[in-house]
Simulated scan of single mutants.
Amino acid sequence: MARMKFLCDTERCIECNGCVTACKNEHEVPWGVQRRRVVTINDGVVGQEKSLSVACMHCSDAPCMAVCPTDCFYRTEEGVVLHDKDVCIGCGYCFYACPFGAPQFPQSGTFGLRGKMDKCTFCAGGPEEDGSEAEFEKYGKNRLAEGKLPLCAEMCSTKALLAGDAVEVSNIFRERVIRRGGKGVEAIGWSTAYGKGSADADTRAAAATAPVPEKTGGAQ
């Protein structure tokens, strides 16, 4: 079974916000909620700017699931982290636990009114019947049930935002790094996650830049 993941190639992201617009239009996201947003690091510093498209990363060890007192979060067979709005009590614990700021409160009411949290669903809907009106009203369109990938990635004009099976996504990014003549791993946050100079980091960096067999087809 595929394990779905996102990855943003900062060397290709041009901060056009096409992914943000595509997400809001496809799912009719509530006013004030950004399931996906583009952030720029070192904004205004010539030669050092890096733009990054950020949403729920559907973590393998999701902190939102760990802190939720009602266990409204759950993981699908594809590794997508979703939540049941009928169980959510709007306590906001997930909001504070998530390092990506993915779970959000709609801005139509006061924070303390215990609204229902909203977040990126990887275009996988929710616990309701696939393709039903109830599912769309609460969670947006279920593109995965239709055999499609998240629209944010499909609409990315520079193919900076990758989505799909983690193995395929990592293979595509690894080939790009090699073609650019890169050394080590260029993904934002790698050194933070694995530690600079650590044995694990060096091993993973070597594996990520190792030559891969030539193949035809696929996004490049």
Score class of each variant (00 low, 15 high):
residue 97 A to R: 03
residue 214 E to N: 12
residue 56 C to G: 07
residue 202 D to S: 12
residue 40 T to F: 07
residue 191 S to Y: 08
residue 169 V to C: 11
residue 30 P to Q: 09
residue 5 K to R: 14
residue 65 M to D: 07
residue 59 C to L: 02
residue 92 G to S: 11
residue 153 A to W: 00
residue 217 G to A: 14
residue 199 A to T: 13
residue 72 C to E: 11
residue 101 G to N: 06
residue 181 G to P: 07
residue 172 I to S: 08
residue 14 I to R: 08
residue 23 C to M: 03
residue 74 Y to T: 05
residue 144 L to Y: 02
residue 217 G to F: 07
residue 182 G to V: 03
residue 55 A to G: 13
residue 5 K to H: 12
residue 139 Y to C: 07
residue 54 V to L: 14
residue 60 S to W: 08
residue 159 K to M: 08
residue 8 C to I: 00
residue 90 G to P: 05
residue 104 Q to W: 11
residue 122 F to T: 04
residue 64 C to Y: 03
residue 38 V to F: 11
residue 12 R to S: 13
residue 170 S to T: 10
residue 69 P to Q: 06
residue 202 D to T: 05
residue 212 V to K: 14
residue 37 R to G: 08
residue 137 E to W: 03
residue 172 I to F: 03
residue 58 H to P: 04
residue 131 G to F: 08
residue 160 A to K: 01
residue 115 G to T: 09
residue 59 C to H: 00
residue 53 S to I: 05
residue 124 A to I: 00
residue 175 E to A: 15
residue 148 K to E: 14
residue 31 W to G: 08
residue 201 A to H: 10
residue 177 V to F: 01
residue 91 C to H: 05
residue 68 C to M: 08
residue 175 E to H: 08
residue 163 A to F: 02
residue 89 I to S: 12
residue 23 C to Y: 02
residue 63 P to T: 09
residue 4 M to R: 11
residue 162 L to V: 04
residue 52 L to M: 12
residue 41 I to Y: 10
residue 151 L to W: 01
residue 26 E to P: 00
residue 122 F to R: 03
residue 158 T to H: 08
residue 1 M to Q: 11
residue 98 C to N: 09
residue 176 R to C: 05
residue 141 K to D: 15
residue 144 L to T: 07
residue 76 T to E: 13
residue 173 F to D: 10
residue 84 D to H: 00
residue 60 S to F: 11
residue 43 D to V: 07
residue 75 R to S: 10
residue 205 A to Q: 07
residue 196 K to Q: 15
residue 159 K to V: 04
residue 147 G to Q: 03
residue 22 A to T: 00
residue 40 T to V: 15
residue 42 N to I: 02
residue 136 F to M: 10
residue 60 S to H: 12
residue 24 K to G: 04
residue 174 R to A: 15
residue 175 E to Q: 14
residue 207 A to C: 09
residue 114 R to G: 10
residue 111 F to A: 15
residue 139 Y to L: 05
residue 95 F to N: 11
residue 190 W to C: 04
residue 40 T to R: 09
residue 160 A to M: 01
residue 180 R to W: 14
residue 140 G to P: 01
residue 90 G to F: 03
residue 20 V to D: 10
residue 103 P to V: 09
residue 165 D to T: 07
residue 194 Y to E: 06
residue 33 V to S: 06
residue 59 C to M: 05
residue 34 Q to N: 13
residue 46 V to L: 13
residue 196 K to M: 12
residue 145 A to T: 00
residue 133 E to I: 01
residue 201 A to C: 09
residue 199 A to F: 07
residue 166 A to K: 09
residue 23 C to E: 02
residue 150 P to A: 04
residue 174 R to G: 15
residue 187 A to F: 12
residue 29 V to N: 01
residue 65 M to H: 03
residue 54 V to E: 11
residue 158 T to Q: 10
residue 4 M to K: 06
residue 197 G to I: 02
residue 114 R to S: 15
residue 148 K to I: 08
residue 114 R to E: 15
residue 204 R to P: 03
residue 37 R to D: 10
